[in-house]
Nucleic acid binder design. Structure first.
Lengths: 235, 235
DNA sequence: CGGTTATTTGAATTGGATCAATTTCTGTGG
DNA sequence: CCACAGAAATTGATCCAATTCAAATAACCG
């Protein structure tokens, strides 16, 4: 069972992993493109992603899709619906994937009997909020090619966490439509933004393979903030 | 001590209010425009807003401001920085305001000894994530005047929660610059979006007074989703 | 091979930003 | 109470960014 993402909290102790693994359940296998659940579906579950990539999205009334989060193995998925009777987000598989269905009881158990782990879950949620805030700033306040570049960098960082390597490339199962829906632009413009990044000699994306030609240059160009360390001493 | 916002959770019990009120501390008074803390400041506190309005924002490297959240009395403010050594957001007063500084110990106390309240805090954070997701969809996928209209409606709903009334108007201390920074557009365009909404006969904003001329029409126009009920049974 | 989905490019159009200038509005001190 | 300075709101003109529509190419799969 994968706990690397969660265990990256410095105050994660041995007993905590055990408690964290209470959050598990029956496995479901998904094909690429399959929808795990749709926004508005009743009594939403929480999932734990074992393999593959997922995307979470919300729809506007006009039927336009906004991707809010990409999920990589190890992630807990769908927690935002925990306080709702209907799912707040659509979850779909970007690649073949494998998820566990986590029963709500497990969360009750963790909060009642494992306060440290509950607090870590809470902190994790705060970090997700920060990520959303930055996503908001990227979409609301940056030009298109910077938006795309920033997204590629973020995905790279997260892919590195799951499967560290020294290479400056990684594969991702996103289409240009996905990139567009995550960065708030049309697919045509996403394509042109990628072209722009390519012509600047920063990144190329071919068939899901992202190659950073000039990683430092891209970081400087997109101006993504450096990630700061965690504080968990109060727990 | 105001707990209305928090007590709106259906499973909020008598003893919970007491535990929730552990989250309090010394009072600080702020003048309109004053900055409570700046993004990047070390050892950030969490605050509880007693009176007035606050805005939370992040900056891009180019120095452009993105407002991520407006806070009304009763809110806990700055929780996203709980897991960080440096503040993740700037907090400033949109009006004269009064906040309490909540010591981190209080959170430890709640998580260790009041699991129900901890769980409610956790759920509250999930709702905040949902709010950010919708904010993202609004900025990323809607036209300017709808963005502004949607923001005005959301603020109205929240103001109604704090101070319910049957009127279809409310006062808010936001400048057009604030509206622009929250909706991801220039101040000039925010002004034109307001003009557009006015000319459609939907809302007018004069001097902080928001008057809905056609509330149903605005809801239909902006297509904001209806808020769904909460589920807290698993706690 | 034909049907589908993804990528790429062009041309026309719209949305929004920027620059500049004017008009309120607000608070302050005389 | 008025004069003034600074902030906020409004409008016009111009330019650039991004969308839409359209169409061609490429890749993929049964």
């Amino acid at each position: 069972m994968q706990t690397a993402r969660f265990a990256s909290f410095s105050s994660f102790l041995d007993g905590d992993a055990e408690a964290f693994n209470l959050l598990s359940g029956p496995v479901v296998r998904l094909r690429k493109g399959e929808v795990l659940r749709v926004e508005g579906a009743p009594n939403p579950d929480v999932y734990r992603l074992r393999a593959g990539w997922l995307a979470c999205s919300v729809m506007t009334a006009e039927g336009r899709r906004q991707i809010t989060k990409f999920h990589l193995p190890g992630d807990l998925v769908g927690m935002t619906s925990l306080a709702a009777h209907e799912a707040t987000e659509t979850i779909e598989a970007l690649s073949d994937a494998e998820v566990e269905i986590v029963p709500l009881d497990a969360f009750a158990e963790v909060f009642n009997n494992h306060p440290r782990v509950a607090a870590l879950l809470f902190l994790w949620s705060q970090e997700e909020r920060v990520r959303l805030m930055h996503h908001l700033a990227v979409i609301g306040r940056m030009r298109s090619s910077k938006r795309v570049g920033a997204l590629l960098l973020l995905l790279y960082q997260r892919a590195q966490l799951s499967a560290p390597s020294r290479r400056t490339s990684f594969t991702m199962p996103l289409t240009q439509q996905d990139l567009a829906d995550a960065t708030g632009m049309s697919i045509v413009h996403a394509n042109r933004s990628l072209k722009d990044l390519r012509e600047r000699g920063l990144v190329t994306v071919v068939d899901g393979l992202v190659k950073f030609r000039d990683l430092r240059g891209l970081i400087a160009y997109t101006e993504v903030p450096t990630v700061s360390k965690r504080r968990t001493d109060w727990i």
